[in-house]
Amino acid sequence: MPGVNEMAEVQLADVFVEMADTLVDEFDVIDFLHVLTQRCVQLLGVSAAGLLLTDQQDTLQVVAASSERTRLLELFQLQTDQGPCVDCFRTGQPVSVADLTAAGRWPGFAVAAAEVGFASVHALPMRLRTEVIGALNFFDTSRGPLDGDKVRIGQALADVATIGLLQQRAIHRRDVLTEQLQTALNSRVLIEQAKGVLAERLQLDMDKAFMVLRSEARNRNRRLSELAKAIVDGSERISEASDADHSG
């Protein structure tokens, strides 16, 4: 992993400018969080990043990941029962496991992570004042801790994610937080349903289906979740031709 000092500061600044720009426009929260997880991978030099939010019924749900590979999503989701991510969520503190083989606390999770080739895992809390609303979760194929600078950058990105989720609305009441959290979770369900429609219609795997959906939303200048809804209710279609154009 390159150290933060070697990391181009320009790149770091670019990411925060990109995120701030996105927040100004009318934007899709799931797409925003997806880009944010991808930037985490680039800036922190980790293999994968995922973002989980509370459904306010004691379960964490995956709303965005740097890659939509089914096994990766499953691995993030697996941690809602046991794992560093759920511990981070419950305590509100960062959890870092430099070597998963030496971590006996979550046997089921450690085995599943090893199967997918991950050696270390880190989780940072998403906080709104006293309330923990989710966690940003990183996997890496090499062992080792996340150094202090990276933890700070990761936490700044987790805070940006929280701001993005709230979408400029003044959160002086829990009501608004609930409305936004539940909306984000339902948008994520919509996107999964649309991935299924595209996977079946175009005979793609789920990862590819997401890429097609996302690039079509960008081409048509539509919000990701709006296009997903239109695809699921059949009012809009994506043809195989678009698949050939954008699947790369």
Binding site: L185, V189, Q193, A194, G196, V197, A199, E200, V232
Partner: peptide, 23 residues
């Protein structure tokens, strides 16, 4: 209904195409 397992929602989408029905 609002399960955390994404495959349930993915399968729902796939079945709309397989059966030609609403979600």
């Amino acid at each position: 209904a609002g399960t955390e397992h994404p495959e349930v929602h993915q399968a729902t989408g796939m079945i709309t195409v397989q059966l030609g029905v609403t979600a």
